[in-house]
Design a binder for these strands. Structure first.
Lengths: 270, 270
DNA sequence: ACAAAAGTGTTATCCTTACACCCATGT
DNA sequence: ACATGGGTGTAAGGATAACACTTTTGT
């Protein structure tokens, strides 16, 4: 049982080195009935995107998630999931809500499907069928720095724009909604731009990002003035767009000043 | 084993009637390694208070908490704990954070003390010693409407002002801190006044409440104007204080208008 | 009369909003 | 020349902050 489990668990959960050497990996090494799910958010083409998994040979989609080793902090489990799916080392990641409804993961999924995945682990099906309480984490990432990797249940790991999200298993759709509304409410306290945009960006791009998060249009001139007044931007030379208009400036963040300003409430967008 | 457990569990967890009739109550009926803790907040004498428990015959203090039945939603467990400790039927209660550090409840407590409590349940000590992930809920209540009741571990259940909190077990101090900072950040979206103050109150009292939550002083005149402009107050006749000054008006909330205003951001206090 | 606290007023300053205007660029 | 979108300007209205003035009440 151990050898088999060791293989599987290395899929479920790429352990930290410290955990690897100290423990035999098997389902008993995880907290029963507890999991983490990650809403990994990126931004491209003026739209927010979420990273989702498609299950092997099936038209079933889910959020990336994982179990919590008895030897690790819960936040570590979330970091692990995020790292395994994206390759990112120092992501922005935070907890936003814990989903504990009794029936949240009963029904909707026939766990017999895992037998088709070539997974033969003693107790695996029973493990997956038990009642789970899951804690939702959200990550803000630069989509272009990610290298999406499917997990042991899935054959695809893809960015989907919010408006084209497939139907997701269980309450994963609700989990995404909750993450987005959390980000919307907390927008003034989160490092939105610095995590979701590439190193260099235009004010227009930053504005479109805020518009996507707040789900409403903002005035161009006012946005620019408000943002620049924060004093956390470094203006670069002009961009040579080749478009039929004035070339916009490129900006990058003054990371030191950004850190300071996040501690206290700053520019407000309502 | 069952009879004994049934008695104990009725202390740990006053079940809903629906649960009572359907299940034999024993430790196996609870989610292992998962709990809820409640930061129950009241307001009196210009200070925020938290409801805490003192363990039987010991100088050990903790937050009221409980376990989650396999047959109930997690939020129901929190409501149950709150109801059992305060008698309140329709409290304002919300989740704010889940604490999942590996070592959060290892060390610090010698669970052998429970043998002194006259509790003899098979596996009880082991149950309490396992690693727990706990979800924090906060409640905003009218302190005068509460009827504090100790649980099976405690002989006292008391309101303590924030500045006179005793040392608490495990990470319960941290849990309170996190709850307070959550309330501070969310203050404009929470029904602060309507839950924490009695039916009738003066503007001065409301101001002192906001000052306690925000931990800073506010200008009297500006506070009054800002609040009243919200249009959610009904002015009553003057109060006959007997103090050597002009008698202040009493107010009560217009609950219908209050509901509406909480949905959208309203008056801001920073 | 006086102190104390309520209720209300005043003013300068800042922020927000909704536009308008000019500038640079490629077709 | 002209359309397109960037950068900046402006003026009205609202919100904020600091403080002053008046009113009520018990001693």
């Amino acid at each position: 049982m151990c050898t088999n489990n060791t293989i599987i668990i290395s899929y479920i959960c790429t352990m930290d080195d410290s955990l690897k050497t100290n423990h035999i990996l098997s389902l008993e090494n995880f907290l029963p009935g507890q999991s983490v799910d990650c809403v990994i958010i990126g931004y491209e083409n003026h739209e927010l995107h979420v990273l989702v998994l498609k299950w092997k040979n099936l038209n079933i989609w889910s959020l990336p998630g994982g179990f919590i080793s008895k030897e690790e902090d819960m936040s570590n489990a979330a970091t692990r999931v995020l790292r395994d799916r994206t390759g990112l080392k120092f992501p922005y990641l935070d907890q936003f809500y814990t989903f504990g409804n009794k029936d949240r993961n009963s029904g909707g999924v026939d766990w017999n499907v895992i037998t088709k995945f070539g997974i033969e682990v003693e107790g695996m099906k029973k493990w997956l069928e038990q009642r789970f309480v899951t804690t939702g984490y959200f990550a803000l990432v630069d989509l272009n720095e990610c290298n999406p990797q499917p997990d042991f249940l899935s054959d695809r790991c893809e960015w989907k724009p919010l408006k084209e999200l497939p139907e997701l298993i269980l309450d994963h759709g609700l989990i995404i909604k909750k993450a987005l509304s959390h980000i919307k409410v907390q927008v003034n306290y989160l490092p939105i731009g610095i995590t979701l945009l590439p190193e260099l960006f235009t004010m227009k791009e930053l504005q479109k990002l805020y518009e996507a998060i707040l789900d409403k249009e903002l005035d161009r001139g006012n946005f620019q003035r408000k943002m620049l007044k924060l004093g956390i931007f470094i203006r670069q030379e002009k961009q040579l767009t080749g478009a039929a208009n004035k070339a916009p400036y490129l900006y990058k963040f003054d990371k030191v000043k950004y850190e300071k300003i996040l501690e206290n409430p700053h520019a407000r967008f309502n």
